[in-house]
Design a protein around this nucleic acid. Sequence first.
DNA 1: AATAAAATTTAGTCTAGCCTAAATTTTAGA
DNA 2: TCTAAAATTTAGGCTAGACTAAATTTTATT
Lengths: 225, 225
Amino acid sequence: MPEAITQSIQDYLKHIYELNEHGGAASTNDLASRLSVAPASVTGMLQKLANSQPPLVIYKKHQGVRLTKNGEKAALEVIRHHRLLETFLVKTLGYSWDEVHCEADKLEHVISENFETRMAAALGNPTRDPHGELIPTADLVMPADESCPLASLRADETATIRRVSADDPALLRHLHKIGVVPEVKITVKNYSEFDGNLTLQVEGQKSNIVLGTAVTNQVFVEKEN
Amino acid sequence: MPEAITQSIQDYLKHIYELNEHGGAASTNDLASRLSVAPASVTGMLQKLANSQPPLVIYKKHQGVRLTKNGEKAALEVIRHHRLLETFLVKTLGYSWDEVHCEADKLEHVISENFETRMAAALGNPTRDPHGELIPTADLVMPADESCPLASLRADETATIRRVSADDPALLRHLHKIGVVPEVKITVKNYSEFDGNLTLQVEGQKSNIVLGTAVTNQVFVEKEN
DNA sequence: AATAAAATTTAGTCTAGCCTAAATTTTAGA
DNA sequence: TCTAAAATTTAGGCTAGACTAAATTTTATT
Ligand SMILES: [Mn+2]
Ligand SMILES: [Mn+2]
Ligand SMILES: [Mn+2]
Ligand SMILES: [Mn+2]
């Protein structure tokens, strides 16, 4: 009797996936703040997910959680929905890339497999969403990500922007305005060792721009080979 | 402090609206069967809706409920979402008219006003959904319905099909196959006073068809003037 | 290694929305 | 008009998923 994967559980799994990608295990507090829920509530849910049949996470007290294979599949299902929806909203309904996140966050739990399939086909089975994030395949495999943080580049390096890992609509609008969007080529003109600022030449833009690490850590690029 | 209109409440209001349209007040049992919920649960919810601030229904024990103006607006909001979504699914994602109901029933609670507006614009502000049902306007007014049941026609009368008020996918597929869909002209060739069967000539179809009252009561037409 | 701070868990509550069983009210038929 | 059936309401309970406050464990700092 596999227990129902509710909307709430889908949100937990999605955020655990994203936290697992970077650091190792996902901590109670990180989950609480991402989910806007009290830490005690997270503990309760993690215990439930760990004891569900089949288990969706591996949980050891005070040491955070990791997804099991089952939990990962369920997470990738939601993430695929989310990223396909974002793409669909932009391409089909003319949303801008700073508006789509909220809408997709609600729709992702509600669409059927039929909807997913039709949407993917209508979009030509895209591999990235409007922010450049990779879309898990229909059989729920996350493609390998070859990109590195823009912050890690130094003077004279050239690279192509692949993805912007930011939710903040104001930042997204700003980046769009200065041309910092996926598939655009950039060249680092200067690196400041004091504050980590990068001076960039952006393909298609007249003047150079300077970005701090708060921004350059959220932009991911692939270096020229 | 206007209380939150949850997904569950939206479903209650939508079904109360539809029951109010036909008979007068909506009964506990009718609501229970439409919502697939125990009658006792309906009673509990009706009391809550009647006591909410502002009240969404007028409820007198043992006499069913009617929507208040506030309740009607909330119901029309959901119905507008539902019918626009059905239209969108057919026009944009290639769904057939027998598939859309389930999907729209989930999405109707989740889309934003932004989504609604963009969708309506993309579709050219349609006035009817794929089944011919009228779509409430953006300011939540339900257009007047001029149609009457096909079952009320008699021999030699000619009419245009306006809407098909059926959920059953199998029936919808059948009607589609025999060309009984909105905006098609039909002529009654024969009425059988014994079983109420109608023999119809359907515009664009080679041979006549015979339909029983179980079907002709769900098809609505406008007579030739 | 000791201790203060931070993170996490436990314990106890709450609410929405459902349920069943029993009681009551309405309605229809003789 | 009486009575049986149908409809509805009341009473009492349950579960998911949240919360707060208090207890405990881990981590960081001296
Ligand atoms: Mn899917
Ligand atoms: Mn995205
Ligand atoms: Mn609306
Ligand atoms: Mn419809």
